[in-house]
Design a protein around this nucleic acid. Structure first.
Lengths: 241, 241
DNA sequence: CGAACCCTTGAGTCGGTTCAAAGCAGGTGG
DNA sequence: CCACCTGCTTTGAACCGACTCAAGGGTTCG
Protein backbone atom coordinates (compact mmCIF):
# COMPACT_ATOMS: atom_id res chain seq x y z
CA UNK A 1 0.00 0.00 0.00
CA UNK A 2 2.63 2.47 1.05
CA UNK A 3 4.88 1.50 -1.82
CA UNK A 4 1.94 1.92 -4.12
CA UNK A 5 1.56 5.47 -2.99
CA UNK A 6 5.18 6.22 -3.52
CA UNK A 7 5.12 4.66 -6.93
CA UNK A 8 2.05 6.57 -7.95
CA UNK A 9 3.45 9.88 -6.94
CA UNK A 10 6.62 9.59 -8.93
CA UNK A 11 7.09 12.68 -11.00
CA UNK A 12 6.83 12.32 -14.72
CA UNK A 13 9.78 13.51 -16.70
CA UNK A 14 8.72 14.32 -20.21
CA UNK A 15 12.24 14.39 -21.53
CA UNK A 16 12.60 10.74 -20.67
CA UNK A 17 9.14 9.65 -21.74
CA UNK A 18 8.95 7.27 -24.65
CA UNK A 19 5.53 8.61 -25.56
CA UNK A 20 6.75 12.07 -26.34
CA UNK A 21 6.19 11.71 -30.05
CA UNK A 22 2.57 10.77 -29.52
CA UNK A 23 1.83 13.17 -26.73
CA UNK A 24 3.75 16.12 -28.12
CA UNK A 25 4.16 15.37 -31.77
CA UNK A 26 6.21 18.31 -32.94
CA UNK A 27 9.13 20.58 -32.52
CA UNK A 28 10.73 20.12 -29.14
CA UNK A 29 14.45 20.72 -28.85
CA UNK A 30 16.58 19.44 -25.97
CA UNK A 31 16.40 22.57 -23.89
CA UNK A 32 12.69 22.83 -24.41
CA UNK A 33 12.28 19.32 -23.11
CA UNK A 34 14.17 20.34 -20.04
CA UNK A 35 11.75 23.19 -19.46
CA UNK A 36 8.94 20.80 -20.07
CA UNK A 37 9.96 18.65 -17.15
CA UNK A 38 8.83 21.53 -14.98
CA UNK A 39 5.34 20.38 -15.77
CA UNK A 40 6.11 17.61 -13.36
CA UNK A 41 2.84 15.79 -13.44
CA UNK A 42 2.54 12.74 -11.26
CA UNK A 43 2.03 9.18 -12.37
CA UNK A 44 -1.06 7.36 -11.27
CA UNK A 45 -2.37 3.84 -11.58
CA UNK A 46 -6.01 3.33 -12.45
CA UNK A 47 -7.26 -0.21 -12.06
CA UNK A 48 -9.66 -1.89 -14.42
CA UNK A 49 -13.14 -0.54 -13.84
CA UNK A 50 -12.01 2.48 -11.85
CA UNK A 51 -12.92 6.02 -12.83
CA UNK A 52 -10.19 8.47 -13.69
CA UNK A 53 -12.78 11.22 -13.42
CA UNK A 54 -16.54 11.55 -13.46
CA UNK A 55 -19.02 13.95 -14.96
CA UNK A 56 -19.24 16.96 -12.70
CA UNK A 57 -15.99 16.46 -10.83
CA UNK A 58 -13.86 19.59 -10.80
CA UNK A 59 -11.36 20.04 -13.58
CA UNK A 60 -7.77 20.68 -12.64
CA UNK A 61 -5.64 18.55 -14.91
CA UNK A 62 -5.54 16.78 -18.22
CA UNK A 63 -4.30 13.22 -18.48
CA UNK A 64 -1.86 11.55 -20.81
CA UNK A 65 -2.16 7.79 -21.03
CA UNK A 66 1.18 6.05 -20.55
CA UNK A 67 -0.27 2.61 -20.86
CA UNK A 68 -3.62 0.89 -20.76
CA UNK A 69 -7.01 1.63 -22.19
CA UNK A 70 -9.91 3.91 -21.34
CA UNK A 71 -13.39 4.68 -22.48
CA UNK A 72 -15.12 8.02 -22.04
CA UNK A 73 -18.88 8.27 -21.94
CA UNK A 74 -21.62 10.79 -21.43
CA UNK A 75 -24.68 9.98 -19.37
CA UNK A 76 -28.19 10.97 -20.32
CA UNK A 77 -30.72 11.92 -17.65
CA UNK A 78 -32.62 8.69 -18.02
CA UNK A 79 -29.52 6.65 -17.30
CA UNK A 80 -28.48 5.66 -20.79
CA UNK A 81 -24.84 6.11 -21.56
CA UNK A 82 -23.18 6.87 -24.84
CA UNK A 83 -19.53 5.98 -25.29
CA UNK A 84 -17.81 8.99 -26.85
CA UNK A 85 -14.37 7.50 -27.30
CA UNK A 86 -11.77 4.84 -26.63
CA UNK A 87 -8.33 6.01 -25.59
CA UNK A 88 -4.97 4.34 -25.57
CA UNK A 89 -1.33 5.11 -24.79
CA UNK A 90 -0.24 8.54 -25.90
CA UNK A 91 -3.77 9.92 -26.03
CA UNK A 92 -4.74 12.95 -23.99
CA UNK A 93 -7.98 12.95 -22.04
CA UNK A 94 -9.95 15.67 -20.28
CA UNK A 95 -9.64 18.50 -22.78
CA UNK A 96 -13.40 18.80 -23.01
CA UNK A 97 -13.51 20.02 -19.41
CA UNK A 98 -11.47 23.19 -19.86
CA UNK A 99 -14.46 25.15 -21.06
CA UNK A 100 -16.73 24.52 -18.12
CA UNK A 101 -14.25 23.93 -15.31
CA UNK A 102 -15.80 20.55 -14.57
CA UNK A 103 -15.62 17.24 -16.34
CA UNK A 104 -18.41 16.62 -18.80
CA UNK A 105 -17.94 12.90 -19.24
CA UNK A 106 -16.85 9.84 -17.33
CA UNK A 107 -13.47 8.23 -17.95
CA UNK A 108 -13.20 4.57 -16.98
CA UNK A 109 -10.19 2.29 -17.28
CA UNK A 110 -10.99 -0.79 -19.38
CA UNK A 111 -7.81 -2.37 -18.16
CA UNK A 112 -5.39 -1.42 -15.43
CA UNK A 113 -3.71 1.67 -16.78
CA UNK A 114 -1.04 4.19 -15.98
CA UNK A 115 -1.63 7.84 -16.59
CA UNK A 116 0.36 11.02 -16.29
CA UNK A 117 -1.53 13.84 -14.62
CA UNK A 118 -0.73 17.27 -16.05
CA UNK A 119 -1.98 20.19 -13.94
CA UNK A 120 -3.70 22.42 -16.42
CA UNK A 121 -2.86 25.74 -14.83
CA UNK A 122 0.81 24.86 -14.92
CA UNK A 123 0.51 23.74 -18.51
CA UNK A 124 -1.15 27.04 -19.40
CA UNK A 125 1.52 28.99 -17.64
CA UNK A 126 4.34 27.12 -19.26
CA UNK A 127 2.83 27.34 -22.69
CA UNK A 128 2.85 31.12 -22.34
CA UNK A 129 6.61 31.13 -22.66
CA UNK A 130 6.95 28.07 -24.88
CA UNK A 131 5.42 28.61 -28.30
CA UNK A 132 5.99 25.04 -29.36
CA UNK A 133 4.10 23.72 -26.36
CA UNK A 134 1.19 26.00 -27.05
CA UNK A 135 1.23 24.92 -30.65
CA UNK A 136 1.05 21.28 -29.61
CA UNK A 137 -1.84 21.91 -27.30
CA UNK A 138 -3.76 23.69 -30.02
CA UNK A 139 -3.06 20.92 -32.46
CA UNK A 140 -4.21 18.24 -30.11
CA UNK A 141 -7.47 20.02 -29.35
CA UNK A 142 -8.05 20.86 -32.98
CA UNK A 143 -7.53 17.27 -34.03
CA UNK A 144 -9.98 16.08 -31.47
CA UNK A 145 -12.59 18.40 -32.95
CA UNK A 146 -11.84 17.22 -36.48
CA UNK A 147 -11.94 13.58 -35.40
CA UNK A 148 -15.27 14.07 -33.67
CA UNK A 149 -16.66 15.38 -36.93
CA UNK A 150 -15.62 12.16 -38.63
CA UNK A 151 -17.48 10.24 -35.99
CA UNK A 152 -20.52 12.41 -36.50
CA UNK A 153 -20.44 11.50 -40.17
CA UNK A 154 -20.19 7.87 -39.22
CA UNK A 155 -23.08 8.03 -36.76
CA UNK A 156 -25.21 10.09 -39.09
CA UNK A 157 -24.66 8.46 -42.44
CA UNK A 158 -23.15 4.99 -42.26
CA UNK A 159 -24.79 1.60 -42.06
CA UNK A 160 -23.85 -1.00 -39.49
CA UNK A 161 -21.22 -2.75 -41.62
CA UNK A 162 -19.55 0.49 -42.54
CA UNK A 163 -19.41 1.60 -38.92
CA UNK A 164 -17.79 -1.62 -37.82
CA UNK A 165 -15.32 -1.49 -40.68
CA UNK A 166 -14.41 2.10 -39.84
CA UNK A 167 -14.05 1.16 -36.20
CA UNK A 168 -11.72 -1.77 -36.86
CA UNK A 169 -9.61 0.18 -39.32
CA UNK A 170 -9.26 3.06 -36.90
CA UNK A 171 -8.15 0.75 -34.10
CA UNK A 172 -5.74 -0.99 -36.44
CA UNK A 173 -4.23 2.29 -37.54
CA UNK A 174 -3.80 3.49 -33.98
CA UNK A 175 -2.20 0.28 -32.79
CA UNK A 176 0.09 0.40 -35.77
CA UNK A 177 1.11 4.00 -35.01
CA UNK A 178 2.14 2.78 -31.56
CA UNK A 179 4.33 0.02 -32.85
CA UNK A 180 1.88 -2.84 -32.46
CA UNK A 181 0.50 -5.07 -35.15
CA UNK A 182 -1.96 -3.45 -37.49
CA UNK A 183 -3.35 -6.83 -38.48
CA UNK A 184 -4.29 -8.39 -35.17
CA UNK A 185 -5.14 -7.05 -31.76
CA UNK A 186 -7.09 -7.56 -28.62
CA UNK A 187 -10.31 -5.63 -28.11
CA UNK A 188 -10.38 -4.09 -24.68
CA UNK A 189 -14.09 -3.31 -24.69
CA UNK A 190 -17.27 -5.36 -24.75
CA UNK A 191 -19.66 -5.67 -27.69
CA UNK A 192 -22.03 -3.45 -25.80
CA UNK A 193 -19.43 -0.68 -25.47
CA UNK A 194 -18.57 -0.95 -29.15
CA UNK A 195 -22.25 -0.73 -29.93
CA UNK A 196 -22.70 2.28 -27.72
CA UNK A 197 -19.81 4.01 -29.43
CA UNK A 198 -21.10 3.21 -32.91
CA UNK A 199 -24.78 3.83 -32.25
CA UNK A 200 -25.70 0.14 -32.59
CA UNK A 201 -27.00 -2.58 -30.31
CA UNK A 202 -24.61 -5.24 -29.06
CA UNK A 203 -26.47 -7.92 -31.02
CA UNK A 204 -25.88 -6.01 -34.23
CA UNK A 205 -22.17 -5.71 -33.44
CA UNK A 206 -21.95 -9.43 -32.80
CA UNK A 207 -23.88 -10.34 -35.94
CA UNK A 208 -21.77 -8.04 -38.08
CA UNK A 209 -18.53 -9.48 -36.71
CA UNK A 210 -19.86 -12.93 -37.59
CA UNK A 211 -20.78 -11.76 -41.06
CA UNK A 212 -17.30 -10.29 -41.63
CA UNK A 213 -15.82 -13.56 -40.49
CA UNK A 214 -18.03 -15.60 -42.82
CA UNK A 215 -16.91 -13.39 -45.66
CA UNK A 216 -13.27 -13.87 -44.77
CA UNK A 217 -12.64 -10.22 -43.93
CA UNK A 218 -11.62 -10.86 -40.35
CA UNK A 219 -11.17 -13.63 -37.84
CA UNK A 220 -12.83 -13.21 -34.47
CA UNK A 221 -12.24 -15.21 -31.33
CA UNK A 222 -13.98 -13.46 -28.48
CA UNK A 223 -11.92 -10.29 -28.06
CA UNK A 224 -9.09 -11.23 -30.34
CA UNK A 225 -9.43 -9.75 -33.82
CA UNK A 226 -7.42 -10.48 -36.90
CA UNK A 227 -7.86 -8.39 -40.02
CA UNK A 228 -7.65 -10.83 -42.92
CA UNK A 229 -8.51 -8.42 -45.70
CA UNK A 230 -8.06 -4.81 -44.65
CA UNK A 231 -8.48 -3.61 -48.22
CA UNK A 232 -11.91 -5.15 -48.45
CA UNK A 233 -12.82 -3.33 -45.25
CA UNK A 234 -11.58 -0.09 -46.75
CA UNK A 235 -13.62 -0.74 -49.86
CA UNK A 236 -16.67 -1.16 -47.68
CA UNK A 237 -16.09 2.38 -46.47
CA UNK A 238 -15.45 3.87 -49.87
CA UNK A 239 -19.02 3.42 -50.99
CA UNK A 240 -21.59 4.49 -48.50
CA UNK A 241 -24.62 2.31 -49.20
CA UNK B 1 -17.16 47.19 -56.41
CA UNK B 2 -14.40 49.41 -55.25
CA UNK B 3 -16.41 50.53 -52.25
CA UNK B 4 -17.10 46.93 -51.51
CA UNK B 5 -13.43 46.24 -51.37
CA UNK B 6 -12.83 49.09 -49.06
CA UNK B 7 -15.66 48.04 -46.83
CA UNK B 8 -14.51 44.48 -46.69
CA UNK B 9 -11.01 45.34 -45.73
CA UNK B 10 -11.90 47.52 -42.81
CA UNK B 11 -9.98 46.44 -39.81
CA UNK B 12 -11.92 44.89 -37.03
CA UNK B 13 -11.58 46.56 -33.68
CA UNK B 14 -12.43 44.11 -30.97
CA UNK B 15 -12.75 46.77 -28.31
CA UNK B 16 -15.65 48.26 -30.23
CA UNK B 17 -17.26 45.00 -31.24
CA UNK B 18 -20.66 44.28 -29.83
CA UNK B 19 -20.01 40.55 -30.07
CA UNK B 20 -17.17 40.59 -27.61
CA UNK B 21 -19.15 38.78 -24.93
CA UNK B 22 -19.93 35.94 -27.28
CA UNK B 23 -16.61 35.78 -29.00
CA UNK B 24 -14.46 36.29 -25.95
CA UNK B 25 -16.68 35.49 -23.04
CA UNK B 26 -14.41 36.23 -20.12
CA UNK B 27 -12.09 38.54 -18.34
CA UNK B 28 -10.95 41.34 -20.61
CA UNK B 29 -10.11 44.63 -19.00
CA UNK B 30 -9.92 47.94 -20.93
CA UNK B 31 -6.19 47.84 -21.59
CA UNK B 32 -6.37 44.23 -22.67
CA UNK B 33 -9.00 45.13 -25.21
CA UNK B 34 -6.67 47.76 -26.54
CA UNK B 35 -3.96 45.15 -27.01
CA UNK B 36 -6.51 42.91 -28.61
CA UNK B 37 -7.12 45.41 -31.36
CA UNK B 38 -3.66 44.52 -32.57
CA UNK B 39 -5.22 41.33 -33.88
CA UNK B 40 -6.59 43.58 -36.55
CA UNK B 41 -8.45 41.02 -38.55
CA UNK B 42 -10.31 42.22 -41.61
CA UNK B 43 -14.01 42.14 -42.24
CA UNK B 44 -15.34 40.16 -45.13
CA UNK B 45 -18.72 39.66 -46.75
CA UNK B 46 -19.74 36.18 -47.78
CA UNK B 47 -22.83 36.02 -49.93
CA UNK B 48 -25.50 33.35 -49.66
CA UNK B 49 -24.21 30.13 -51.14
CA UNK B 50 -20.56 31.19 -51.17
CA UNK B 51 -17.86 29.21 -49.48
CA UNK B 52 -15.87 30.80 -46.68
CA UNK B 53 -13.41 27.93 -47.01
CA UNK B 54 -13.30 24.46 -48.46
CA UNK B 55 -11.90 21.12 -47.42
CA UNK B 56 -8.23 21.08 -48.25
CA UNK B 57 -7.74 24.82 -48.58
CA UNK B 58 -4.78 26.05 -46.54
CA UNK B 59 -5.45 27.18 -43.01
CA UNK B 60 -4.29 30.61 -41.99
CA UNK B 61 -7.07 32.17 -40.00
CA UNK B 62 -10.07 31.44 -37.88
CA UNK B 63 -13.32 33.27 -38.45
CA UNK B 64 -15.71 34.99 -36.08
CA UNK B 65 -19.22 35.49 -37.42
CA UNK B 66 -20.39 39.07 -37.03
CA UNK B 67 -23.71 38.43 -38.65
CA UNK B 68 -25.39 35.85 -40.82
CA UNK B 69 -25.52 32.09 -40.82
CA UNK B 70 -23.24 29.27 -41.93
CA UNK B 71 -23.23 25.54 -42.21
CA UNK B 72 -20.13 23.38 -42.08
CA UNK B 73 -20.04 19.97 -43.68
CA UNK B 74 -17.68 17.12 -44.35
CA UNK B 75 -17.67 15.28 -47.65
CA UNK B 76 -17.35 11.54 -47.99
CA UNK B 77 -15.46 10.04 -50.92
CA UNK B 78 -18.63 8.89 -52.60
CA UNK B 79 -20.02 12.41 -52.66
CA UNK B 80 -22.34 12.31 -49.69
CA UNK B 81 -22.12 15.22 -47.33
CA UNK B 82 -22.76 15.34 -43.64
CA UNK B 83 -23.57 18.68 -42.04
CA UNK B 84 -21.45 18.97 -38.90
CA UNK B 85 -22.81 22.23 -37.61
CA UNK B 86 -24.79 25.43 -38.02
CA UNK B 87 -23.10 28.63 -36.97
CA UNK B 88 -24.42 32.07 -36.15
CA UNK B 89 -23.19 35.44 -34.97
CA UNK B 90 -20.53 35.24 -32.31
CA UNK B 91 -19.53 31.70 -33.22
CA UNK B 92 -15.97 30.89 -34.19
CA UNK B 93 -15.29 28.69 -37.21
CA UNK B 94 -12.19 26.97 -38.49
CA UNK B 95 -10.70 25.67 -35.25
CA UNK B 96 -10.72 22.13 -36.58
CA UNK B 97 -8.06 23.09 -39.14
CA UNK B 98 -5.30 24.05 -36.71
CA UNK B 99 -4.19 20.47 -36.29
CA UNK B 100 -3.63 19.65 -39.91
CA UNK B 101 -2.82 23.05 -41.42
CA UNK B 102 -5.64 22.69 -43.92
CA UNK B 103 -9.36 22.95 -43.59
CA UNK B 104 -11.12 19.67 -42.99
CA UNK B 105 -14.64 20.76 -43.79
CA UNK B 106 -16.53 23.15 -46.05
CA UNK B 107 -18.08 26.32 -44.67
CA UNK B 108 -20.96 27.76 -46.69
CA UNK B 109 -22.99 30.88 -45.99
CA UNK B 110 -26.70 30.08 -45.73
CA UNK B 111 -27.43 33.78 -45.95
CA UNK B 112 -25.27 36.74 -46.81
CA UNK B 113 -22.97 37.06 -43.83
CA UNK B 114 -20.22 39.18 -42.43
CA UNK B 115 -17.22 37.59 -40.84
CA UNK B 116 -14.13 38.78 -39.06
CA UNK B 117 -10.98 37.05 -40.20
CA UNK B 118 -8.46 36.46 -37.43
CA UNK B 119 -4.98 35.45 -38.62
CA UNK B 120 -4.12 32.48 -36.49
CA UNK B 121 -0.40 33.08 -36.21
CA UNK B 122 -1.06 36.56 -34.90
CA UNK B 123 -3.62 35.21 -32.49
CA UNK B 124 -1.13 32.63 -31.23
CA UNK B 125 1.52 35.25 -30.83
CA UNK B 126 -0.71 37.62 -28.97
CA UNK B 127 -2.07 34.94 -26.70
CA UNK B 128 1.50 34.23 -25.61
CA UNK B 129 1.55 37.49 -23.71
CA UNK B 130 -2.14 37.67 -22.87
CA UNK B 131 -3.21 34.92 -20.50
CA UNK B 132 -6.84 35.86 -20.70
CA UNK B 133 -6.84 35.55 -24.47
CA UNK B 134 -5.21 32.16 -24.32
CA UNK B 135 -7.73 31.10 -21.74
CA UNK B 136 -10.57 32.16 -24.00
CA UNK B 137 -9.17 30.26 -26.92
CA UNK B 138 -8.83 27.12 -24.84
CA UNK B 139 -12.35 27.48 -23.55
CA UNK B 140 -13.80 27.92 -26.97
CA UNK B 141 -12.05 24.87 -28.35
CA UNK B 142 -12.87 22.81 -25.30
CA UNK B 143 -16.53 23.71 -25.53
CA UNK B 144 -16.63 22.70 -29.13
CA UNK B 145 -15.31 19.29 -28.16
CA UNK B 146 -17.85 18.94 -25.38
CA UNK B 147 -20.67 20.07 -27.65
CA UNK B 148 -19.66 17.59 -30.32
CA UNK B 149 -19.94 14.84 -27.74
CA UNK B 150 -23.53 15.88 -27.10
CA UNK B 151 -24.22 15.62 -30.79
CA UNK B 152 -22.62 12.20 -30.87
CA UNK B 153 -25.02 11.12 -28.14
CA UNK B 154 -27.88 12.51 -30.15
CA UNK B 155 -26.82 10.78 -33.36
CA UNK B 156 -26.08 7.54 -31.59
CA UNK B 157 -28.97 7.18 -29.20
CA UNK B 158 -31.93 9.39 -29.97
CA UNK B 159 -35.00 8.75 -32.05
CA UNK B 160 -36.17 11.11 -34.74
CA UNK B 161 -38.55 13.10 -32.52
CA UNK B 162 -35.93 13.52 -29.84
CA UNK B 163 -33.37 14.74 -32.35
CA UNK B 164 -35.71 17.35 -33.75
CA UNK B 165 -36.70 18.48 -30.27
CA UNK B 166 -33.05 18.79 -29.27
CA UNK B 167 -32.31 20.68 -32.45
CA UNK B 168 -35.12 23.19 -31.99
CA UNK B 169 -34.31 23.76 -28.32
CA UNK B 170 -30.66 24.30 -29.12
CA UNK B 171 -31.47 26.87 -31.79
CA UNK B 172 -33.92 28.57 -29.48
CA UNK B 173 -31.37 28.77 -26.71
CA UNK B 174 -28.73 30.20 -29.02
CA UNK B 175 -31.03 32.81 -30.50
CA UNK B 176 -32.09 33.75 -27.02
CA UNK B 177 -28.47 34.13 -25.89
CA UNK B 178 -28.02 36.62 -28.73
CA UNK B 179 -30.95 38.75 -27.73
CA UNK B 180 -33.49 37.32 -30.15
CA UNK B 181 -36.72 35.59 -29.35
CA UNK B 182 -36.39 32.12 -27.89
CA UNK B 183 -39.94 31.29 -28.89
CA UNK B 184 -39.96 32.02 -32.59
CA UNK B 185 -37.35 32.20 -35.28
CA UNK B 186 -36.56 31.70 -38.90
CA UNK B 187 -34.78 28.54 -39.99
CA UNK B 188 -31.92 29.41 -42.31
CA UNK B 189 -31.41 25.88 -43.61
CA UNK B 190 -33.47 23.46 -45.70
CA UNK B 191 -35.13 20.31 -44.41
CA UNK B 192 -32.45 18.34 -46.16
CA UNK B 193 -29.68 20.18 -44.31
CA UNK B 194 -31.44 19.68 -41.00
CA UNK B 195 -31.76 16.01 -41.85
CA UNK B 196 -28.13 15.74 -42.77
CA UNK B 197 -27.15 17.33 -39.48
CA UNK B 198 -29.43 15.07 -37.46
CA UNK B 199 -28.78 11.87 -39.35
CA UNK B 200 -32.29 11.75 -40.81
CA UNK B 201 -33.85 12.01 -44.25
CA UNK B 202 -35.59 15.20 -45.25
CA UNK B 203 -38.95 13.43 -45.37
CA UNK B 204 -38.55 12.35 -41.77
CA UNK B 205 -37.75 15.92 -40.74
CA UNK B 206 -40.82 17.19 -42.54
CA UNK B 207 -43.08 14.52 -41.09
CA UNK B 208 -41.81 15.11 -37.59
CA UNK B 209 -42.36 18.85 -37.86
CA UNK B 210 -45.91 18.12 -38.96
CA UNK B 211 -46.39 15.76 -36.06
CA UNK B 212 -45.13 18.34 -33.56
CA UNK B 213 -47.52 20.85 -35.06
CA UNK B 214 -50.47 18.46 -34.83
CA UNK B 215 -49.63 17.91 -31.18
CA UNK B 216 -49.51 21.64 -30.52
CA UNK B 217 -45.82 21.69 -29.62
CA UNK B 218 -44.79 24.06 -32.38
CA UNK B 219 -46.20 26.03 -35.27
CA UNK B 220 -44.46 25.67 -38.62
CA UNK B 221 -44.90 27.81 -41.70
CA UNK B 222 -42.19 26.89 -44.13
CA UNK B 223 -39.06 28.18 -42.43
CA UNK B 224 -40.73 30.11 -39.68
CA UNK B 225 -40.89 28.17 -36.42
CA UNK B 226 -42.77 29.04 -33.28
CA UNK B 227 -42.23 27.01 -30.14
CA UNK B 228 -45.66 26.70 -28.53
CA UNK B 229 -44.73 24.35 -25.72
CA UNK B 230 -41.02 24.31 -25.08
CA UNK B 231 -41.49 22.33 -21.87
CA UNK B 232 -43.15 19.51 -23.74
CA UNK B 233 -40.19 19.47 -26.10
CA UNK B 234 -37.84 19.28 -23.14
CA UNK B 235 -39.86 16.45 -21.70
CA UNK B 236 -39.45 14.60 -24.96
CA UNK B 237 -35.73 14.76 -24.38
CA UNK B 238 -35.82 13.77 -20.73
CA UNK B 239 -36.90 10.24 -21.49
CA UNK B 240 -35.01 8.59 -24.26
CA UNK B 241 -37.55 6.06 -25.54
C1' DC C 1 -45.18 31.41 -67.80
C1' DG C 2 -41.98 27.84 -67.08
C1' DA C 3 -38.15 25.92 -64.50
C1' DA C 4 -35.95 24.91 -60.40
C1' DC C 5 -36.18 24.14 -55.84
C1' DC C 6 -38.27 23.07 -51.60
C1' DC C 7 -41.77 21.00 -48.84
C1' DT C 8 -45.53 17.74 -47.69
C1' DT C 9 -47.83 13.37 -47.61
C1' DG C 10 -48.76 8.46 -48.70
C1' DA C 11 -47.60 3.46 -49.26
C1' DG C 12 -44.44 -0.18 -49.13
C1' DT C 13 -39.92 -1.91 -47.68
C1' DC C 14 -35.95 -3.01 -44.93
C1' DG C 15 -32.06 -2.60 -41.63
C1' DG C 16 -31.47 -2.74 -37.15
C1' DT C 17 -33.88 -3.45 -32.74
C1' DT C 18 -36.27 -6.22 -29.43
C1' DC C 19 -37.18 -10.29 -27.18
C1' DA C 20 -35.76 -14.77 -26.12
C1' DA C 21 -32.81 -18.78 -25.51
C1' DA C 22 -28.62 -20.97 -25.13
C1' DG C 23 -23.41 -21.47 -25.04
C1' DC C 24 -19.03 -20.19 -23.05
C1' DA C 25 -15.45 -18.55 -20.31
C1' DG C 26 -13.58 -16.96 -15.78
C1' DG C 27 -13.98 -16.54 -11.04
C1' DT C 28 -15.56 -17.82 -6.36
C1' DG C 29 -16.65 -20.43 -2.59
C1' DG C 30 -17.91 -24.76 -0.63
C1' DC D 1 -11.63 -29.79 -7.46
C1' DC D 2 -16.03 -29.22 -8.79
C1' DA D 3 -20.46 -26.64 -8.76
C1' DC D 4 -22.33 -22.61 -9.48
C1' DC D 5 -22.37 -18.20 -10.41
C1' DT D 6 -22.14 -13.95 -13.29
C1' DG D 7 -20.98 -11.50 -17.27
C1' DC D 8 -20.22 -11.72 -22.16
C1' DT D 9 -21.37 -13.46 -26.61
C1' DT D 10 -23.89 -15.71 -30.29
C1' DT D 11 -27.92 -16.77 -32.90
C1' DG D 12 -32.89 -16.95 -34.15
C1' DA D 13 -37.54 -14.91 -35.03
C1' DA D 14 -40.72 -11.15 -34.90
C1' DC D 15 -41.29 -6.35 -35.06
C1' DC D 16 -40.99 -1.40 -35.99
C1' DG D 17 -39.10 3.21 -37.03
C1' DA D 18 -37.04 5.43 -40.51
C1' DC D 19 -36.00 5.04 -45.43
C1' DT D 20 -37.31 4.73 -50.29
C1' DC D 21 -40.05 5.71 -53.97
C1' DA D 22 -43.57 8.44 -55.79
C1' DA D 23 -46.83 12.08 -56.54
C1' DG D 24 -48.46 16.73 -55.88
C1' DG D 25 -48.35 21.60 -54.30
C1' DG D 26 -46.12 26.00 -53.25
C1' DT D 27 -42.50 29.78 -54.08
C1' DT D 28 -39.16 32.20 -56.29
C1' DC D 29 -36.83 33.90 -60.04
C1' DG D 30 -35.57 34.48 -64.69
Amino acid sequence: MKEDNILNQLKVVCSLCSLRELCLPIGFGPQELEQLDALAGSKKLVKRGEYLYRTGSPFSAIYAIRGGFFKTSVLHEDGREHVTGFHMMGDIMGLDAIGSGAHVCDAVALETSEICEIPFDRLSELSMCMPVLQQNLHRIMSREIAFDHEIMLMLGKMRAEERLAAFLLNLSQRFSARGYSAASFQLRMTREEIGSYLGLKLETVSRTFSKFQDEGLIAVQKKFIELKDANALKRLLGSLA
